[in-house]
Structures are given as C-alpha cells and as structure tokens.
Amino acid sequence: MRKTSDQLIDQTLAALRDTTPPTGMERRILHAVEHHAANPSTLHPWTWSLTAAGLVAVLLSIATFTLHHPTTNPGAPGPASGTRASIPTLEPSAPSSTDSSIVGQGGLSRENATALLNPASNPLKTHNSTKPALLQPTPDHLLCDCDPIALAESRAPSQPAPPLPLTDQEKLLRRIVDKGDPIELAELNAANRAAHTAADQAAFQSFFHPPLTEPNE
C-alpha cells in the first residue's frame, strides 16, 4: 500500500523526533564539561592552527627581508662613514650660450646645429640637469645610524638618466650636419626655404601668359 506524501512526511519527521540519544551520553558530556572546567585554558584546535599560521607568516617575512636586503659588515668602513667628502657633488651647469645663439637668429650655423643635437650640451635632452642641486647631502644629525645600508644608499651619487633616443627628424638633422653641405644647412632656415619656394613658384609662373579675361557681354 502506497503512502501519501503527508504520511511520508509525518513518518520521516516522527523518526527525527523519536531519535534516542546514545547510551551514556550524559556521563560523557559531564566528564567533558568537568575537564573543561578544570582546564579553562584549553585552547581550541583552530587556535593552534592560527598560531602556526602566524609563525609561518613571521618566518616568511623574515626570509623575504633577508633575501631583499643582504647583510653587510657594519664594522667595515663603508660609504656611510667618513667618505662624504669624496662623494662628488653635482653642481648645476651654467646656462649655456647656445641657448641665446640658437634662439633669435635667423639662420642655423653648423656650430649651432651641432650644439642643438649634442645631448651633453642640449638643455632639452638632459632631464636631470637641475636635479643635483636638490640632492644636497643630508646632515649627519638628521640621519639615523641604525641602518647603514639605508645610509649608504642615501649617500650614493645619483646617476643621471640615460639620454633619450633621437627622433627621426633629429636623425635627419644630424645627417645633414655631419654631411656639412652649405645648401642643405641653409635650407634648414625656414625664411630661406620660404624665399626659395616663392622664387621657384614665380619662375614656374613666368612660363605662362596671364589669363585673358573676356569682356562681359
């Protein structure tokens, strides 16, 4: 005989209700509670897991710090002690006369073009030309002696950034300057180039008659 759904549900729920506890459960629970009352500091298993995880994290951080910061002998004379006088201080260079010679002149001489293309003398290409003035050495009393590595790194001379590669136009200019052709150098001047173009157009137009305008009817 098949049961209805309600009978099946009731039978299942009644089985849950009629479940009897295992024999001796109260005694075991009382013993456990007594044990817990006698040892209140008993830690849960997850507490040990957390402690172990914390220890592993500390060890990993120490190992990482050691790998990224190799130890040095603090007794050895390093750059941190007594060598500040030998560190070259970079002074800002005096303003070059090429700036005024380039700007404001109508034409480009070979020397001016060379000065423009030379990264060492070009103020536009040296990005760190004013940085050394900011890197004045810090007084000793402001530095902490607890970390010689950090002190050495802070006192090390700064390395200027490498020059940027030339663009295509700059490479073309360099080729023209190296070649030294006066005509090509003169063409670099925009006024000369415009005059030359105008003369060419006038010469071209000279081959044609002026347009004849027919009288209006």
Binding site: L16, T19, P22, H36
Partner: peptide
C-alpha cells in the same frame, strides 16, 4: 541532554555529531 540531542540530530542527522554539539552546548553554558 535528550531534548538537545534531538534538536541537534534533526539538523545534522548524525548521532556522533549531535552528541558533540550537545557537549559544546554545555561548555558554552559553562
């Protein structure tokens, strides 16, 4: 204990787990 065991067993449907739950209950009480 019997009532708490049935409560835990209705959720867990495992006798050992239900007994452990009852034990944890009385430790909480403590």
């Amino acid at each position: 204990s019997p009532l708490l065991f049935r409560v835990a067993h209705s959720v867990l449907r495992s006798r050992p787990e239900a007994e452990d739950t009852v034990q944890d209950t009385f430790i909480r009480v403590l």
